[in-house]
C-alpha cells in the first residue's frame, strides 16, 4: 500500500507496538523510493467497536495521538537528536468506511532493535555498549528537560538502537510538558507500572513539576541501568522487599510506606551491586542510589550531600555515563 507522504507499507510488525494513551496501535515496516526505511505506528479507530463506552475512548484516543504527533514535531524542530524522530504523519485511506476507514499514522525512523532485545547478545554485548547506551538515554532526557518535556516512560523497550547513531529514546505518549497539559497529567504515574517510580504507585503527586516529572525520569534512568545489568526493574526489586501489607494495593499512603521503601531500596541496591562488573561497581551503585532513591524530594542527592538542595538535573549523569563509557571503551581498545 502506498501512502500520500511517499511511503510504501511493506508489512506488519509481528510484535504489538503497545498501548498509546489507553488506546491501541499497530506497527508496520515502511520504505521510500529513495531507500529510506521507516516504522509506522497506525492508530486503529476500529477498536472502538469493541469498547463499551466509545465516546470517551475516541476522545482519549485522538488527544493522545495529537499530543504525541505535536510533541514529536516540537522535538524535531528543536533538533533533539537523541529522541527517535518522526519523519512523517498523515492519514491512510484503508477502505471506504466513514471515519474508521481513515487511519491516522506517524512514521518514525526505523531502529535495528530495542535495548532489551539487544541484551540477548549478553556476553558479547559489552560493558562499554551498555554504558554508552545509558549515556545516550541520559542525553535524551537532558535534551527533553531543557525543553520543558519529561518523558515519563523510559524503559528498555522504549530505547531503540540505531546502527550509526546509537541509542535513542522513543514513545513520548506518556510525556508531560512544563506549563502545558498532557493527556496523562492527571495520573499519578503515566507509564508502565512494572517500571513506575514508587511514589507513583502509591499515588503521591508532588506539587512541584520538577520533583514530580524530572524525578520520575531520573528514577527511570536509574531503573534502566539496573535493568541492563540485572534484567529486572528497580520497581520489581523494591516491590519484592516491601512487606505485603505495605504494598500500594492495600491503600497505604506514600508517607506511611516510605520508611519501608527506604529499607527495601537499601537492600535492593546491595543486591543489584552483585550484578555490576567490578571495575564500575562503586560508580554504578552510587548512580543508582542517587537516581532511584524512593523519596522523589531527595532524589539525585548523594549520601555526602544530603543537605544540598538544588534542582535535579540530568547534566551530571550525562557527564558521568560518558566518562564511564569512555573508560570502558578504552579498556576494550586495549584488550
Amino acid at each position: 500500500m502506498d501512502l500520500d507522504t511517499g511511503w510504501h507499507v511493506d508489512g506488519m510488525v509481528a510484535r504489538p507496538a503497545g498501548a498509546t494513551g489507553g488506546c491501541f496501535s499497530d506497527a508496520y515496516r515502511v520504505s521510500r523510493a529513495d531507500g529510506a526505511q521507516g516504522f509506522l505506528k497506525a492508530l486503529d479507530f476500529s477498536r472502538a467497536l469493541d469498547v463499551p463506552d466509545p465516546v470517551p475512548w475516541f476522545q482519549a484516543f485522538t488527544t493522545a495521538y495529537l499530543f504525541e504527533r505535536d510533541i514529536l514535531a516540537a522535538c524535531d524542530a528543536r533538533r533533539l537528536d537523541r529522541i527517535v524522530r518522526s519523519i512523517a504523519h498523515g492519514y491512510a485511506d484503508v477502505d471506504q468506511t466513514p471515519l474508521l476507514g481513515r487511519v491516522p499514522y506517524i512514521i518514525f525512523e526505523r531502529a535495528e532493535q530495542d535495548v532489551g532485545s539487544a541484551l540477548i547478545l549478553v556476553g558479547t554485548v559489552d560493558l562499554a555498549w551498555r554504558l554508552r547506551s545509558l549515556h545516550h538515554v541520559a542525553t535524551a532526557l537532558f535534551q527533553l528537560h531543557q525543553n520543558g518535556i519529561a518523558h515519563q516512560d523510559v524503559k528498555a523497550s522504549n530505547v531503540l538502537l540505531f546502527k550509526s547513531a546509537g541509542s535513542k529514546v522513543a514513545d513520548l505518549g506518556c510525556a508531560s510538558v512544563r506549563g502545558g497539559s498532557a493527556p496523562r497529567d492527571g495520573l499519578a504515574f503515566a507509564g508502565d507500572p512494572a517500571h513506575a517510580a514508587p511514589e507513583g504507585l502509591y499515588g503521591y503527586v508532588d506539587p512541584e513539576w520538577n520533583v514530580r516529572r524530572i524525578g520520575c525520569d531520573a528514577y527511570h534512568l536509574g531503573s534502566l541501568l539496573v535493568f541492563l545489568f540485572s534484567q529486572a526493574s528497580m520497581t520489581a526489586l523494591l516491590y519484592a522487599g516491601i512487606p505485603e501489607p505495605m504494598r500500594p494495593e492495600h491503600g497505604v499512603k506514600f508517607e506511611e510506606a516510605l520508611p519501608h521503601l527506604q529499607t527495601a531500596f537499601s537492600s535492593a541496591v546491595a543486591t543489584v551491586e552483585t550484578a555490576f562488573p567490578t571495575e564500575v561497581k562503586s560508580d554504578l551503585s552510587a548512580i543508582v542510589r542517587e537516581l532511584c532513591y524512593p523519596d522523589p524530594r531527595e532524589r539525585g542527592r548523594t549520601r555526602k550531600h544530603l543537605e544540598r538542595i538544588g534542582p535535579l538535573t540530568m547534566q551530571r549523569y550525562v557527564t558521568r555515563f560518558d566518562f564511564l563509557a569512555r573508560r570502558a571503551e578504552a579498556l576494550v581498545r586495549r584488550a
Partner: peptide, 12 residues
Amino acid sequence: GTRGDLLSAAVV
C-alpha cells in the same frame, strides 16, 4: 529484555 519486562511486571 522481554523476560525482564515480564518478570518485573509479574513481581509488581
